[in-house]
């Protein structure tokens, strides 16, 4: 019964797709897209285009995470620093990250460093600002408890600050992940000769429509996979948070 519920609508949609696919040059049949998918991506493109793209994404994402949390903790801990930097940070967050691509190309060329830098420059702000907010909002009673029992320095960071701010940090990381995927694709659509984004645009220019659709499908699967992975990690890291019902409050 559950399986029927889960699969009924997707099956219906695929059937619909099948039914209308003959009518348009731009919409090949699901079978044709499936074939293209297997031929295109289970080849050297996987190692030449897909994996390097994902690698750059993870590299930039990790760097933004370290940088965002590393800067967010001191900024969030000091009211004065926070008041000084908050407008500046809000401004940087408000800049749509893709517009930085032309700029970063200017500064860092068109190779891997540029692409990673683009991802970092977009992922950093949501992580940083959410960390600042999380650290600022640490529970005062817990902070007092730490002071009373002499929990300070590194232990305070590890036992109080990071876990206490973790729900907010995870929110920032979740926002950053979707921005990171967008930037991974866009950075490769500009003046690039490899990568997932480049390949998909190439198919489009050469009117390889089924291949193009298979690329869209792959990006969708990638987005789905990464967000599912993220949710698992989040459930694990924040098990206490969901358990305590704080998430619902």
């Amino acid at each position: 019964m559950r399986a029927v519920r889960l699969l009924a609508l997707p099956a219906l949609l695929v059937l619909l797709w099948w039914a209308v696919s003959g009518s348009s040059f731009y919409l090949p049949s699901p079978l044709r897209v499936g074939q293209a998918f297997a031929e295109t991506w289970f080849s050297e493109r996987l190692t030449d285009d897909v994996l390097p793209s994902v690698g750059r994404l993870l590299m930039g994402y990790a760097a933004a995470g370290l940088l965002g949390v590393g800067l967010g903790v001191p900024i969030g801990s000091s009211p004065r620093l926070r008041a000084t930097l908050e407008p500046v940070l809000e401004f940087f967050r408000a800049i749509p990250p893709p517009v930085l691509v032309p700029l970063i190309m200017l500064l860092a060329g068109i190779d891997t460093p540029m692409k990673v830098l683009v991802i970092v420059s977009g992922c950093l702000w949501p992580i940083l600002l959410n960390t600042v907010e999380g650290v600022r909002a640490l529970d005062e009673v817990l902070a007092d408890t730490c002071r009373m029992y002499g929990v300070r320095g590194l232990a305070r960071l590890r036992r109080l600050v990071l876990p206490g701010a973790a729900p907010q940090i995870m929110t920032g990381l979740r926002q950053a992940l979707s921005i990171g995927i967008i930037l991974m694709v866009i950075s490769e659509m500009f003046a690039s000769s490899s990568g997932l984004g480049f390949t998909i645009v190439l198919f489009q220019r050469q009117f390889q429509i089924a291949e193009m659709w298979s690329g869209i499908l792959l990006l969708g699967l990638l987005g789905l996979g990464l967000s599912a992975l993220f949710r698992r990690v989040e459930r694990r890291v924040l098990s206490w948070y969901y358990g305590s019902g704080a998430a619902r409050a």
Binding site: L7, L13, I181, I200, V201, I216, L219, G220, G223
Partner: peptide, 22 residues
């Protein structure tokens, strides 16, 4: 609808760039 929504939602919209161009 939940499975469909959960599948379509994480698809990055820039994946649609080639389609939009076409």
């Amino acid at each position: 609808t939940s499975s469909t929504v959960e599948f379509l939602r994480p698809i990055p919209s820039v994946a649609l760039v080639p389609l939009a161009t076409l």
